[in-house]
Nucleic acid binder design. Structure first.
Length: 877
RNA sequence: AGGUCGUUAGCUCAGUUGGUUCAGAGCGCUGCCUUGACAGGGCAGAGGUCACCAGUUCGAGUCUGGUACGGCCUACCA
């Protein structure tokens, strides 16, 4: 045998990937005679590297796309990358810092040059990694969200939405990331439980040296921005202070004492300091009472001159210093340990600073309506559907979307400011100039127009992805090109639930806004890949294996199946190397099944006679499994589809079928069985291909030489034929008998090599006769007979048939009796419970006839079994 | 705090209109097996009051209500 006993994936994988690429097997072009099947990839960060989440996600997409391709559909999987403003800019800033360059010291153009250079160097690595996984993307269609035409689409959409009045500019309290120096959307803020302190500070009352109020705060460094003290109107303790003024410690500024229902009398001291510039709730209270806003914190989180003291200090340093100062001034009453949830930047992990600033917003009120309806009506179907509720509550409570980011890497906002303080929104500066001149009846110079410094939120380009990858000009011209008409709406989207709102919801919104159609039919939400401790696998935690290393060790097929063994839609995947090992072992099992078949010599003179039952059975079994697999796929139960395939291959094909037909060692096989077996193997390779593309393509060609056009990847997915359940059930029964006999050998220490003479007492010998060769071979019987009396035998019962194996001295009579008695007792108990049910008139009258009949059959079967067992017992004497 | 989903074998999970494919699968575990396709293997086996309490029903893992615990989403009291 020339083939190794172990499957080695390395060479195979690169060989076939190259083959598929060279033969353009992944490429798709418009073809109206074929039904399109389209997936757009969730574009990974252009400078990112593959992590376990990508592996899971893209494996699922590849399974779907490969199956669709085999089903004869025009399968198109569009790959690409995302510019990921914040993440990429943070990386570039870090890189510059390492070089000793401060972002603030260079111009926007210089910075972007560095960023582009960085992108050229690292960009697209992740796509190369996907190829190692076997991803069958149409690489000719690769897109980047900052390609010129893709960017143009984004600008057009901004201008359009502004024209429609949906985009506006306003002062809002935003989540400020002092490290990234940008505003973040609410979704980019992660709340974490943090141990902090509650500081109790005394504020003196103006004109009364002896009286003071104590407030509790976690942020003493913001007291200089206080504009009021608030108490609850029902709080008798402080009622007398209403209308008085309190004096801010250290800076001695007087502020009014007000009443507001918002204040919780129970919490802290019942007095709340109002700092509108640095707290969202205080801001709202400030609006109610028309309080001024004093902003004492700079964009980088340091205190400014309005703070009067500690100017230039970082907010956290300032906190420490001010507590010392307060202590010195004898105005710090106490410090208390306190747990609170603090917002952190998703990207930089900096503590979020609520900050008032001028930002661009998209009004979400009406634009979301069709997108909400689409999901509620299952026009867009979420898998699993439990996410519908989440989706609804988010869409119903959505706030306006802050779309501006104070970054340079991204799509610069197409708004141009004029010397007169006004601004115009236009695609280009020339257009802006024209509009401005007309609008203000003036003649501005191009140099007088300055474009907004900010860029757009990354999701503001990503939400156009399913449309723009096919036809970015559509957003400018409004005319659909062939590709867009043909491939859109796409079929399935596979992504993580974390970005259901960031991305999925917004794609649906954009889809309806611009095409009047859904962007995709189904959304498959994968789980999060977690480690054994339940932690999300991440680079920063260092708990994630290197996916490429895994592929190297276990093979892409092994890793793919390993990931899918345990990942139902919407459920987290508790990653375990064991699973990948199982995947690799599975590949090896398939490999060895092939080795066995390949090793057979064919003898044209032999007849298939004895193997016909096995072949007939497997044919039916295969079709039964295929129906099951199709059903799982139709419900996006990918793990279940894989498991059904796994069992068909391992249990039914390898453990049963091959054992049934395989000739004795070094004996030849007949032509018919060989041909059939090869046919079965081919059918199996097809079912396996979406999951394990490499080994299957390899074996497909090992079986025989084939033309390029006959490659497995483009072969036809099998169509399920009807199958006879009786044959499958009969075989099941035979297998049970085989197991029982093996069990007897195992428990009695009889060698498998010792052949038995089996006698069967049954009312329907036909089933045993049709499977006789199988039974003899698998159970190692030298004879099979019926209705013979057997003395001194080991016996067992399957259903109501009775089996005897003469066993000479090996029988321990007492033990046999005991076993039989036990089983009789159990069966009698069972019979009693059935009888009880049947003698219950209400059951017999109310239950459907079929159920009653089933119950009666149960009774008869049990009675038959008891009879058989008692007969066996009697024989033992 | 509100909403929502969940709790089935040691682990990860199926269980679709209440009744024979209802107590399942894969992994793990235990025992035996090595010239024979595969030890990355074979054969056999053990393991669960279906979280708890009540109710509806002839009949509940499945339906209803409650309790406990857990996940997720949203909102956050300085």
């Amino acid at each position: 045998m020339s083939l190794s006993t172990k499957y080695d994936p390395t060479e195979t994988e690169s060989k076939w990937y190259k083959f598929w690429l060279e033969e353009k097997m992944f490429a798709s072009t418009v073809n109206h005679r074929k039904e399109p099947y389209t997936i757009v990839i969730p574009p990974p960060n252009v400078t990112g590297v593959l992590h376990m989440g990508h592996m899971l996600n893209n494996t699922i997409q590849d399974v779907l796309i490969r199956k669709a391709r085999m089903e004869g559909k025009n399968a198109c999987w569009v790959p690409g990358t995302d510019h990921a403003s914040i993440a990429t800019e943070a990386k570039v800033v870090g890189m510059l810092k390492a070089k000793g360059i401060d972002k603030k010291s260079i111009t926007r153009e210089e910075f972007l040059a560095y960023a582009r250079e960085w992108k050229e160097k690292y960009g697209g690595i992740i796509l190369e990694q996907l190829k190692k996984l076997g991803a069958s993307c149409d690489w000719d269609r690769t897109r980047f969200t900052m390609d010129a035409d893709m960017s143009d689409a984004v600008t057009s959409v901004f201008v359009d939405l502004h024209k429609k009045g949906k985009i506006y500019r306003g002062i809002r309290m935003v989540n400020w990331d002092p490290l990234g120096r940008t505003a973040l959307s609410d979704d980019e803020v992660i709340f974490k439980e943090v141990n902090s302190k509650l500081y109790y500070i005394n504020y003196k009352i103006e004109g009364n040296e002896n009286e003071f109020l104590t407030i509790a705060t976690t942020r003493p460094e913001t007291i200089m921005a206080d504009v009021a003290i608030c108490i609850n109107p029902n709080d008798a303790r402080f009622a007398h202070l209403k209308g008085e003024k309190a004096i801010i410690p250290l800076i001695n500024r007087a502020i009014p004492i007000l009443e507001d229902d918002y204040v919780d009398m129970e919490f802290g001291t019942g007095c709340l300091k109002i700092t509108p510039a640095h707290d969202i709730n205080d801001y709202e209270i400030g609006l109610r009472h028309q309080l001024p806003v004093i902003d004492i914190i700079n964009e980088d989180g340091t205190l400014n001159e309005k703070a009067e003291i500690l100017i230039g200090e970082d907010r956290f340093i300032a906190r420490k210093k001010i507590t010392k100062l307060l202590k010195k001034a004898d105005q710090l009453v106490k410090e208390e340990e306190y747990q609170s949830n603090i917002g952190h930047s998703e990207r930089t992990d900096a503590v979020i600073e609520p900050k008032l600033s001028l930002q661009w917003f998209l009004n979400m009120e009406t634009i979301t309506q069709p997108a909400l309806k689409a999901v509620m009506d299952n026009v867009v179907q979420l898998y699993p559907p439990k996410f519908k509720n989440m989706y609804r509550s988010w869409m119903e409570n959505v706030r306006d979307w802050c779309i501006s980011r104070q970054l340079w890497w991204g799509h610069q906002i197409p708004a141009f400011y004029l010397p007169n303080g006004e601004y115009v929104v236009a695609k280009t500066q020339e257009e802006a100039l024209e509009i401005a001149n007309e609008k203000f009846n003036a003649t501005f110079l191009p140099s007088e127009l300055t474009q907004d410094e900010d860029v757009l939120d990354t999701w503001f380009s990503a939400w156009l992805w399913p449309i723009s990858v096919f036809d970015p000009e559509f957003f400018t011209t409004g005319e659909k090109k062939e590709d867009l008409k043909y491939y859109y709406p796409t079929n399935d989207l596979v992504t993580a639930p974390e970005i259901l709102f960031f991305w999925v919801a917004r794609m649906i919104i954009a889809g309806y806004e611009y095409t009047g159609e859904k962007p995709f039919r189904n959304v498959y939400l994968t789980g999060i890949v977690r480690d054994k401790l339940g932690r999300k696998m991440s680079k920063s935690l260092g708990n994630s294996p290197d996916p490429l290393e895994l592929i190297k060790i276990y093979g892409a097929d092994g890793v793919r199946t390993g990931m899918l063994f345990s990942s139902p839609a919407g459920n987290d995947l508790p990653f375990d190397l064991k699973l990948v090992e199982q995947g690799r072992n599975f590949a090896n099992k398939i490999w060895n099944a092939f080795r066995l078949i390949k090793g057979w010599e064919i003898d044209a003179n032999l007849s298939a006679g004895d193997n016909r039952a096995a072949m007939e059975w497997f044919e039916h079994k295969y079709n039964q499994s295929l129906v099951e697999i199709e059903d799982h796929f139709s419900k996006f139960r990918i793990s279940d589809a894989l498991m059904s395939t796994y069992k068909l291959v391992w249990d039914d094909f390898c453990s049963w079928y091959l054992e049934m037909v395989k000739p004795p060692y070094q004996h030849p096989i007949d032509q018919e069985t060989y041909n059939k077996t090869i046919g079965f193997l081919e059918g199996i390779l097809k079912l396996l291909h979406p999951f394990m593309p490499f080994i299957t393509e390899e074996l497909w060609h090992e079986i025989k030489d084939r033309e390029v056009s006959e490659a497995l990847i483009v072969s036809q997915w099998p169509k399920a034929r009807s199958y006879d359940e009786k044959i499958i059930k009969d075989a099941q029964h035979i297998f049970e008998v085989v197991s029982q006999i093996r069990n007897i050998r195992a428990s009695k220490g009889i060698s498998p090599k010792e052949a038995f003479e089996l006698t069967i007492h049954t009312t329907c010998p036909g089933i045993y006769q049709s499977f006789e060769p199988v039974l003899k071979k698998l159970a190692n019987l030298n004879s099979l007979s019926f209705d013979q009396n057997v003395d001194n035998a080991i016996s067992f019962v399957v259903k109501s048939d009775e089996f005897f194996i003469p066993a000479g001295d090996q029988v321990d009579l007492e033990k046999e009796k005991e076993t039989l008695l036990k089983e009789i007792e159990y069966t009698k108990g069972f019979l009693a419970s059935v009888n009880k049910k049947l003698s219950n008139e209400r059951f017999v009258n109310n239950a459907p006839a079929a159920v009653v009949a089933a119950e009666k059959k149960k009774m008869a079967d049990a009675q038959g079994k008891i009879n058989a067992l008692e007969e066996s017992l009697a024989k033992l004497g």
